[in-house]
Computed example of a mutant assay.
Amino acid sequence: MDSFFSRLVLSNKTSYRLGRHALFWTVCWAFQGFIYGFYYIEGRATNFFAISYIESFIYLPQHMFLSYAIIYYVLPYIIFRDRYWVGFVWVIALILIAAALSPVVNYYLITPLRIYLHHPVKAMTFFFSFMGGLRGSMTIAGFAVAIKLIKHWYQKKIETEQLEKERIKAELEILKGQIHPHFMFNTLNSIYSLALKKSDETPEAILKLSKLMRYILTDCTNITVNLGKEVEVLLHYIELEKGRFGSRLDISVNIKGDIEKNAIAPLLLLPFLENSFKHGANEMIEQAWMSLDLQVNETALKFKLINGRAIDHNNPNSIHMGLQNVKKRLQLLYPNAHELRITEDADTFVVSLAIELGSIKLIET
């Protein structure tokens, strides 16, 4: 039912357009006939309601003239082109023309009709007939124009929302695309290190890389992915890095909750892990360490990543530069549904992220 009324109001298909126009003028005719039936009543009500409906039908063309002239000429060609004063003059002129038609219709059509049907004829001066036409035409045209403006506003709102969705979608694609090269560069470096050592783990690392590539090229094309797959990518990446660092890396991973029942935007957590290795483990001369905790409760995700770090005296804020991308994605995908805190001191870098997974802002494709 809602779909039918939506099509009736918004569709540009000829059948629906004719249908909504016919419905509008039928309602106007019924309303005018009912109201003026009380105004003319002097004898039996049914007789005067009958003549009222006949007269209302005769007056419809002048109401149509005013309504359609404003809707299909003044609004699109003048008002919507920001020529407001010209539009105002046109509207006033059209109202006066429509009102002036009322005495003509009354003299040449209504009066002869009443005489023919043997109904009382009320003497009406040009002025009162003009004022009656002015009132009736402005009332009907006012409703018609109001409906048109509401429809125009609603369509513009839909267009604006669609453009905003397309903008956000394009921006997300750009942001996500920036992650892939960075991720691949770090992963290939890890495999290259294993190859230099002629490690027996090199084939397994290449296999993990192929799985990661498949994940990026297939699953990551969707707005959301299964949280279990996202966590699996994190674990594969950690294994690749552990092969490169060997015993020099001390890392603990703690995952709690049912990760298979939730979904998350793809590659949202990985940049934090990459950042920890790039600006943490890579730059520590002695033992590198890292701690990852991920908890899921219903649809609430809590992610905490702590790593040791070496201070970059030349560029102390360099660590944050790599996280601007994921911050932006969080703002676009989880507005008012996430909390990200990044704290650091002389030897520690901490990322704390809380997300309400069910509150993702889906972008229609």
Rank of each mutant, 00 (worst) to 15 (best):
H236D: 15
R341E: 01
V27P: 03
E239D: 15
C220E: 07
N336R: 12
A146M: 14
P76Q: 06
R329D: 06
D345M: 06
G308Y: 07
L66R: 01
N275I: 01
Q162Y: 09
A205G: 11
Y237E: 03
G243T: 00
A146E: 02
G228A: 15
H180W: 03
Y84N: 09
L353H: 07
D258H: 05
V89R: 11
I150L: 10
F349R: 12
E298D: 15
F272G: 05
S67T: 05
A22P: 02
H320A: 13
F130H: 10
R17E: 12
K242Q: 15
A310N: 08
N336A: 15
T26H: 04
F4Y: 14
I41Q: 14
E171A: 14
L207I: 09
L209P: 01
T46V: 15
I191F: 13
I58Q: 05
I285D: 11
F272C: 00
Q178D: 12
G322P: 08
I110D: 04
L362F: 08
I115C: 00
L10S: 10
I79T: 09
F34I: 01
N325C: 07
S252N: 08
P266L: 03
K176E: 12
L188C: 05
I363F: 08
L340C: 03
I355C: 03
P181R: 01
W90Q: 11
S129I: 02
E344F: 01
F24K: 08
I92H: 07
D82M: 02
A346V: 06
F245A: 11
F126K: 09
A265N: 08
H279Y: 11
G133I: 10
F127S: 13
F5Y: 15
E339K: 13
R329S: 02
Q178L: 13
S210E: 01
S102R: 08
A146D: 02
E274D: 05
L267T: 02
G243M: 00
I264A: 09
